[in-house]
Design a binder for these strands. Structure first.
Lengths: 337, 337
DNA sequence: CTGAAAGCGCTTACAG
DNA sequence: CTGAAAGCGCTTACAG
């Protein structure tokens, strides 16, 4: 007779403790009006039965699920694990749990949002998602706050926390010119990402304005170490030969670096300079020493959470976007100034 | 007058469609008995109102939340992002969503489990968690299946999917001896992890049995690139000097490698050989080329999900643990055979 | 401080 | 195929 023991409910506990269900509920509600005496009785019964309130039932009444949806694409990024961890820890500290939805770029993000809304999440954070109008109107209908981290879209009214890509593009161009680079290759991943487009536009604008330096190739669809290393083969065929490769990700840059040194025996930065983006931990390890752009990751996380909570607490708040500064870290894959 | 529009419920939809709430419910239940005609009416109303069933309310009746809890520690591992992604994708494909709980080693995992149980998760997967009796008895009380991935414990009756650490420890020892290494340093992270303890025991046993080779240091509490690189300084002080460092993680091994080559100008593997564990992507990049142990990561993920679903479907199933084989990958940080 | 009652949004026998 | 009713496990006015 290993019959399934019924799960303890407030009813069971109330019966055992000899009180009403209300009393049980109050015992588990902070600052509710219960006498110490009944509280103790209820606790004893609850412990005996292994009872804890059912959040699902609770949420039906309180309208609070304490659930935040996190939608992530672009998983190839090495610092995504730590980003995710930070979100998890911060959100947990605030008393929220995260429902994680993974999305490959092709799949419909709208479906994920719909799913999350059915779980009555109190807010949604989207990382590296290319936003669409449809997605946001979904959340609008349900009054669920949403914040987009890492890509912007002027067409969409949505709270967006992002790097100031225009500024960093300009900075990068000035650096490249100051260091004397003249034949530049641009490499990035998904060209639909607004962020990199903005950065590159700003970069180009500086070259044009100063009438120095030239972009001899503008490669897209290349992301990660292996694709970078492979792309290096095509880059070697270019003539004139480039003197700088500017990447949209550190991993890609490290692939280029590997290709250049291991496959083609180039001297970096003498024969070819490389600049990454993101300052992944690996980029500063012993032999890599990549010049790159350091992102204020922790600040982005904090700001996006603040932004979300602000919307949760003030439902009729307008979407206020936030722009963050990033810094170029000079290491060994570029010439010294 | 931007009054909050009330969320659509089955009631609202029913009224608009001119049918009963049952009809609405049936429309959203696959294979329920509804006529095409009412279904269409309901759908029209639902779309107009932006209605979708509330999962929380639904779960109260169906006893299904389609939620799986994922508890992770040990986030420093670089392949954790991809592991997480795989879990997410596979689980989503099966119609489940994941609630992610992050845990630092110190914090009480029991609390996380309690939390997840309150959300009525249908199962829990724990990654790199050091299990305790308390945790499992919690799940037991609620009849919630749990599977532990990546660490075992003989004291605990729990479904465990893990590498056969004894076997790989033996293999590693035989390899080390075959390659002629004699003065070996062992490095690992948390010494409470049963897995590495088992591996090391098996390793030692071979040395003892063959009466060859010697462990000249057994370092614990060292995990990740930076700590590895730092540990290399202590290793250099050892005498006699070691000829092999065996690490419990690729990242640590890469730190050792960086320390050896960058900080101490050693020739790897001539002056010092290094073996990692895990075969992280980085380990095979251009300049690293680390000899390491390749783990059947995808199989572990698949097996652990299968194991969980099996328990969900057969509630009275015994916990059957699974042992997986791993393979040594010979690259450039050890001598050739 | 306490309990009976109503109700959150849903599904599921039940009777028609 | 359809609807009225009961009920999932909880909380929250309400009256005492």
């Amino acid at each position: 007779m290993k019959g399934k023991k019924l799960r303890a409910t407030s009813h069971t506990v109330a019966k055992l403790a000899g009180v009403s269900r209300s009393a049980v509920s109050r015992t588990f509600t902070p600052n509710a009006s219960v006498s110490q005496k009944t509280k103790l009785k209820v606790m004893a019964a609850a412990n005996k039965l292994g009872y804890r309130p059912n959040f699902m039932a609770q949420s039906l009444i309180t309208k609070k699920t304490h659930l935040i949806g996190l939608i992530m694409a672009d998983w190839d990024n090495p610092y995504y694990a730590s980003t995710l961890r930070s979100y998890g820890e911060k959100l947990q500290k605030e008393g929220y749990q995260v429902i994680l939805v993974t999305v490959n770029k092709k799949s419909a993000t709208s479906d994920s949002i719909n799913f999350l809304l059915q779980y009555q999440v109190e807010g949604i954070i989207m990382l590296s998602i290319i936003p669409s109008q449809e997605m946001t109107s979904l959340c609008d209908k349900k009054d669920t706050p949403i914040v987009l981290v890492g890509d912007s879209s002027n067409k969409i009214q949505i709270c967006n926390v992002n790097i100031d890509h225009k500024a960093i593009g300009t900075k990068l161009a000035n650096l490249a010119l100051d260091l004397g680079y003249k034949r530049i290759v641009l490499i990035r991943g998904n060209k639909k990402l607004k962020s990199s487009a903005i950065r590159i536009d700003a970069f180009k604008k500086v070259l044009k304005k100063q009438d120095r330096g030239k972009i001899i190739a503008n490669l897209t669809g290349i992301l990660g170490h292996d694709q970078g290393r492979k792309a290096m083969k095509d880059i070697m065929k270019l003539k004139p030969k480039p003197d700088l490769v500017l990447c949209s990700s550190d991993l890609t840059a490290l692939g280029i670096l590997d290709g250049a040194t291991t496959d083609f025996n180039l001297d970096v930065p003498k024969d070819l300079a490389i600049i990454g983006f993101g300052d992944a931990p690996i980029s500063s390890w012993g032999m890599n020493r990549l010049t790159t752009v350091q992102l204020p990751t922790q600040i982005m996380i904090d700001e996006s959470i603040d932004c979300l909570f602000h919307q949760i607490k003030n439902p009729h708040n307008k979407a206020k976007s936030i722009m963050l500064n990033s810094t170029i870290i000079l290491r060994d894959t570029t010439k010294k100034l």
